[in-house]
Amino acid sequence: MTPKLVLLAGGKGKRMGGDKPFAPYGQSTLIETTLARLRPQVREIVINAGAKTSPLVLPLSCLDAGLIFDDPAFEGLGPLSGVLSALEMARAAGDAMVITAPCDMPDLPDDMVARLLAAPPADVVYFKGARDYPLCALWRISVADPLRNALQQVEGGLAVMRFLATQNVRTIAVDDDAAFANINYPPLAPG
């Protein structure tokens, strides 16, 4: 059975001027475009909205996907707090794994999930091209406790690659880095 996918949308989006998931992209928004790209690949998508008090909770709740929130002890510590929420949701549901993707990657490959599932087993499987794409990943539930412990040890956040260096990981080669481009800045105004 295909695991759930958690779309990470809990960041502050400072470089985008805030409200990053709802930034315009094409004829839609970043998050709606990313959802449309990923929906055919999985049985269920859940959105990590970050803090329960985020002003984006209401608009995110209108996107026909469940919402999960970060543990208040780890709010604002970066994307790994969202990954931990995803892992704990999957563990509570009796799932062995969960897949994550950021809400700001609207051009992800149509076979991203299939490629993650076909990779040789590891605690974490992610994509690597000219850059690492560690949030486009399959995470086994065995990572939940080490991740929680690592987040408890740091102040101000934990770098994703620093955490992954402590885990059993595999990477999948990327032949089109443009498919993994994340949108961090608003589009330039014409003229």
Rank of each mutant, 00 (worst) to 15 (best):
V6D: 08
V6L: 08
L8K: 01
K12L: 14
D19E: 14
K20I: 03
P21F: 07
P21Q: 04
A23Q: 12
P24K: 06
Y25S: 11
Y25M: 08
G26C: 11
T29F: 03
T29D: 09
T29S: 15
L30A: 05
I31K: 03
L38E: 02
V42Y: 05
N48L: 04
A49Q: 03
G50D: 06
A51L: 04
A51N: 09
A51P: 15
K52F: 02
K52P: 14
K52Y: 01
T53W: 10
P55D: 13
L58P: 13
P59L: 07
L60F: 05
S61K: 07
L63Q: 08
F74D: 01
F74Q: 00
L77P: 04
L77Y: 13
S81C: 10
V83E: 07
V83G: 06
L87F: 04
G94H: 09
D95A: 14
D95W: 04
A96W: 02
V98W: 05
V98H: 04
T100V: 10
P102V: 00
C103K: 00
C103S: 15
C103Y: 10
M105V: 13
P109R: 02
D110M: 09
D110A: 15
A114S: 14
A114F: 08
R115V: 02
R115Q: 15
R115T: 03
L117V: 04
Y126V: 00
F127M: 08
K128T: 11
G129P: 12
G129S: 10
G129E: 09
R131E: 14
D132V: 06
D132C: 15
P134H: 05
C136F: 04
A137R: 01
W139V: 01
R140H: 14
S142I: 03
A144L: 09
N149R: 13
A150L: 05
L151A: 02
Q153A: 15
V154D: 06
V154K: 11
V154Y: 03
E155I: 05
G156C: 12
A159F: 11
V160M: 08
M161L: 15
F163W: 06
L164W: 01
Q167K: 07
I172D: 03
A173M: 11
V174S: 02
V174K: 00
D175V: 10
D175R: 11
D175Q: 13
A178V: 07
A178D: 14
A178Y: 08
A179R: 11
A179Q: 13
F180V: 00
N182W: 14
Y185H: 12
P187H: 09
P187F: 07
P187E: 12
A189D: 12
G191C: 10
